[in-house]
């Protein structure tokens, strides 16, 4: 049981971690583009990203599964019921979250800051970098939101992964299965492990995030 638990935890962290990283690599530039770019279809794309933030994982799972089934258009890749399929599904869940949160974050940066940077002689890329640095609080929020949602979703990984023991079983699907089998103690233990992981990771990300906070603490005065 102990090695099995380690296997499950290891797979959970690597699948969700990989999905979050890929979603960041694609989602941050998309968020910046949506926040600063002016191009036709931008409004539509932004609305799609915001809708995508509430995308139900089972729907993502169903669509990705249908694509990857042997009878599906991408069937010859042979990815169904593999960790790679789980990463693909979770990237689709996390990507709108990263893009949406970082878009909102960059839009909230004081519009004077890029102007000042320009006035001080910054190049286009340097101005962009300044903006992204100013928005780092929201960027970290985007990481937390994305990782938190993919590590805790069950619908997509169950459908595209199949919950195969020793191959594609992760914490959430294991919890579901233990519950179905009536083994509530094991299910609760696994739930506890999952919560500990999300808490620990969010704890460090929050510390990192709050380090950058310069606002004076709020004091109530009557």
């Amino acid at each position: 049981m102990k090695t099995e638990l380690l296997e499950i935890v290891g797979l959970t962290l690597s699948v969700s971690g990989m999905a979050t990283l890929i979603a960041l690599a694609l989602g941050l530039p998309l968020g910046v583009l949506l926040a600063l770019g002016r191009f036709p279809g931008r409004g539509l794309l932004a609305a799609m990203v915001n809708t995508g933030m509430g995308l139900p994982p089972v729907v993502v799972g169903l669509v990705v599964a249908m694509l990857l089934w042997r009878s599906g258009p991408l069937g010859q890749w042979g990815l169904i019921y593999t960790p790679a399929a789980m990463v693909i599904a979770q990237v689709i869940i996390a990507l709108p979250m990263v893009a949406g949160v970082s878009m909102a974050g960059i839009q909230q940066v004081d519009p004077m800051i890029p102007l000042q940077a320009r006035a001080l002689g910054a190049s286009g890329w340097q101005t962009l970098w300044t903006l992204v640095k100013e928005a780092r609080l929201s960027m970290l929020a985007a990481v937390m939101a994305a990782f938190g949602s993919v590590i805790s979703e069950v619908g997509a990984v169950l459908m595209v992964g199949g919950n195969l023991k020793g191959q594609t079983r992760v914490l959430t699907t294991a919890i579901l299965q233990e519950t179905r089998m009536g083994r509530f103690e094991t299910a609760l233990t696994l739930a506890y492990v999952l919560l500990m992981f999300t808490f620990t990771i969010n704890f460090f990300l929050t510390r990192l995030q709050q380090k950058g906070v310069r606002a004076a603490p709020l004091r109530w005065r009557r």
Binding site: W69, N163, L164, A174
Partner: peptide, 18 residues
């Protein structure tokens, strides 16, 4: 020997795919 831990319909699908 693959333990799927899912319902009958899902397991039929997995057997078909594999």
């Amino acid at each position: 020997y693959i333990e799927a831990g899912q319902g009958m319909g899902e397991c039929l699908r997995i057997a078909h795919e594999k």
